[in-house]
Design a protein around this nucleic acid. Structure first.
Lengths: 339, 339
DNA sequence: TTGTATGCGTTATCAT
DNA sequence: ATGATAACGCATACAA
């Protein structure tokens, strides 16, 4: 057992050098893929590395090179509540996947709003080469300042005004919503209600806006709005309030399939058929959309790709390559049986 | 702009020492809260730190102390497919939360099965102080070996035989399933079918086992089993197969609420009422359970707490404190309207 | 192309 | 209680 501890010291670059019969510098060059090394040297070093099972010590590397090869994925605490949102989870997965083929390590930071300062200090202290901010709320202001000292890429358009020159990946929520609503109108629906997202989230605002535009373009009235929090339970409540108004409508656009699925239950309860009485479209082709009865007609977002793209862009920025500030990912309508 | 780069070098411990008028050693002691420092020295150093906005360089610290203050959360790639599973997401969130109050950093690793070796090497190389393994599959064998050289805590009981002396946090899946099925029986149901999880996942196996035990204890037949993959779509297919058998049953125990929600749609399609014709219980009090119609009666697992506990246990192990090898978290039945 | 020497910012050992 | 100094493991300018 004391044996265990003794052997736990990992092989060092020095040992590799000895076995390969070259200097430490050469080993270092091979590891860092420097072009100025002979094929034989490379072979010898790689053999030695394999033999020893050598893996570079990250800390030493960071200290010497002044680069960390680490990026942070920052999730403000209130956003973390949406952790169970399939869209959200997919983006995180995409980030991790996008990074897995690189030398970068992903550091997951759930930032308590209380001391966002502490988080910023950590990020500024050179612990990471860049940061990905996944904030769906308007509290991204504190992180925008970060952009001045550290490569940062946002997931979703930052809401604060200072977000003008931030780098971010997003979908066109206004267009997506418009598309969903136009689809309802094209099927002859004329009275389209909406269950919108929170007013302090970009996706919340933009999707109502798209709904409004589609209706106005068709000369239809845009007055039936209920807000919820993107969850099924929220959608349920919103639908109850909507029905309580007593104003008839023949279609619903829900800003998220989760809310749509909550609303579906209430409609069923009230004996309203879908799509017979009420046609529905929503955003997010997730489990909720796919397992709803009837299956929802939705706008699909390339969630995993959004994450993957965020990661790629950040790495590109870190490594000095030019990247566009705003990346809008494509969305598409996926037909279900709710329209 | 070149100004920016010039100033980007963070203040060092050395600079703090100069301003505070003490040696580097003393500064280091203050930072590490060594008891052997005078109050005046502490005050002077802290003033200097505040003045400079000094933050210790992580890499240097790691290199010198041979500790990383980082822990890895390893998610084998095939498990990553379950990323959108609310249970899974909650556990991750719990881990992040549990760590946020400590000095440890969370490094998220999605490990391609192809080179699980590469991942192991990274972990062995001293890049982290410990690892959390979230594997729901039987492929955890490769990670069990890790336990010998690194503090490791598993989420969910490891499936391999060598898992005997692994540290893990889990719920009693057998008991949970038994509870769910007993509830059905206590309501007078006698013909209980089950939609089970995959046979290569501990939760898959254990929950069928619980179902079987409950039925046998009641002298009822345990023969109606269909396997699925824990997703709504899988539940849907499984239910179709179940109905295709043509064998009547009056209750269903689904190993996950996601599958139950998929099954619900099929039952409705076939004109079967819940709980009238078929009573249902399932595991996981998540969105799916809560937004189903009717709301599902389920067994709730403390998912966030599982994650938080995993984090706490790992930190305890790393810091040499004694911890129990197996931690079983409590579950409870939450009544919905499906029974 | 390769090796030598120095430095990265901190902790730890040893004196004092 | 404090300070000088040697590691920690690697990258890199410079020399060869």
């Amino acid at each position: 057992m004391s044996d265990d501890t003794r052997h736990s010291s990992a092989p060092t670059l020095e040992e590799v050098a000895v076995i390969a019969g070259v200097s430490r510098s050469t080993v270092s060059r091979v590891i860092n893929r420097s072009p100025r090394v002979t094929a034989e040297a490379i072979a010898a070093v790689e053999r030695a590395i394999g033999e020893l099972g050598y893996v570079p010590n990250r800390a030493a590397r960071i200290l010497a090179s002044r680069r960390t090869f680490a990026i942070a994925l920052v999730i403000p605490e209130n956003t973390a509540k949406f952790f169970a949102d399939p869209y959200f989870a997919s983006v995180i997965q995409g980030v991790a996947l996008g990074l897995s083929s690189t030398a970068y390590t992903l550091s997951l930071l759930i930032a308590p709003e209380a001391d966002a300062e502490k988080t910023r200090a950590f990020l500024q202290a050179g612990n990471v080469d860049g940061a990905l901010i996944l904030s769906h709320h308007s509290d991204d202001r504190s992180y925008l300042a970060l952009s001045r000292t550290l490569p940062v890429v946002f997931g979703g358009r930052p809401m604060s005004d200072e977000g003008e020159n931030a780098y971010y990946v997003d979908v066109d929520n206004v267009a997506a919503a418009e598309h969903a609503v136009r689809h309802l109108i094209s099927r002859g629906r004329t009275r389209v209600a909406t269950i919108a997202g929170p007013a302090d989230m970009a996706a919340g605002l933009d999707r109502v806006e798209g709904w409004r535009r589609a209706l106005e373009a068709a000369g239809l009235e845009a007055d039936l709005v209920e807000r919820a929090d993107f969850t099924p339970a929220g959608g349920e409540d919103a639908m109850r309030r909507m029905l309580a108004r007593g104003i008839p409508f023949d279609a619903l656009f829900a800003a998220s399939s989760q809310m749509a699925s909550g609303a579906l239950g209430v409609l069923r309860e009230h004996g309203l058929s879908v799509p017979g009485d009420i046609a529905i479209t929503s955003i997010d082709n997730d489990y909720f959309a796919q397992s709803a009865t009837p299956r929802l007609t939705t706008i699909e977002q390339p969630s995993v790709e959004v994450g993957r793209t965020m990661a790629r862009l950040l790495v590109d920025r870190i490594e000095g390559r030019d990247v566009t500030q705003v990346t809008i990912m494509p969305t598409q309508l996926v037909e279900g049986d709710s329209v």
